[in-house]
Design a protein around this nucleic acid. Structure first.
Lengths: 146, 146
DNA sequence: TTTGGATAGTTGCATAACTAACTATATGCC
DNA sequence: GGCATATAGTTAGTTATGCAACTATCCAAA
């Protein structure tokens, strides 16, 4: 086994996603402060629907990197909040297509503004090239484990 | 508001900690394959006790970046598994000191080996200098939000 | 046509997270 | 001493995750 490039104390923060946890927590807090009453997990589902409405739950699984039960329950909760609606596919009755409601359509700009602000807070003082480097490493890590 | 340095599609993966989630999941899987029946959250608590045994729950909160209820329940579950033991402090009866058991002391090397392997998998093909850069960015992000 | 395998989604169970409200103990100031 | 305040830890409620087992539907090959 090759020596791992992380020293022992650094291994921990990488393993436990210290930075991304902090970002997620701050985003949640900023949503709340802006009067937006959704969780970041719910937001992440809406995020994909804003890009393309009417995705199936299966497609939401893939795009949000969650398993099927997680999506089932997130969509359950989003439906309770009247932010999405399940519509059975006519072509294949196994499939539920998930559609945005008017309420969630209007949420898009508001939440994206908060997310951008949060990201600016998080990345304050980090150069664009360092961000690019970091993104590339994280992508590589993800691909390595896929 | 300044333009944020992430393009829209990239914002998402950063916000949701795609890479660190993948690492955590893989580590959990590798623990299981090695016959180690603990969660990575439990492991992260033991990790701090291996560095210094007999920490209070409050100190575990700080070091593992969790709130008090989370630590209460993690210690509950670790105690059920006979991996730690709560000992009330004699100096201050509000405080529980958390001590490793023999069983968890022997777990240390085994789990650290699996963690190192997992990290090597994750970082395969990433240069040492890129890792340094990435670590620095993540640390900066964490500090920005602290 | 039927049967067996694959796919989409749901449900149950255990663990873990955050918030808020709570108990118990310690400490400092009058 | 006694009261206010701070600190350590627990409990309750909601949301989310992972795994395993389940139902329903589709499809293809015998």
């Amino acid at each position: 086994m090759p020596n791992n490039q992380f020293k022992r104390g650094e291994l921990y923060s990488f393993m436990t996603g210290m930075a991304s946890t902090a970002v997620a927590r701050r985003l949640q807090k900023n949503f709340k402060q802006a009067g937006i009453e959704i969780t970041i997990e719910q937001w992440s589902v809406l995020y994909h629907l804003w890009k393309q409405d009417g995705l199936s739950q299966q497609e939401l699984c893939k795009q949000s990197f969650r398993d099927k039960p997680s999506i089932t329950r997130l969509v359950d909760n989003l439906e309770k909040l009247k932010l999405v609606k399940r519509v059975p596919s006519k072509a294949d009755r196994r499939i539920n297509l998930v559609y945005l409601t008017e309420a969630s359509q209007t949420l898009q700009h508001e939440t994206m503004a908060v997310a951008s602000e949060t990201l600016n807070e998080a990345l304050n003082g980090v150069s664009a090239s360092d961000i690019e480097m970091c993104k590339a490493v994280l992508q590589k890590v993800y691909d390595n484990l896929k």
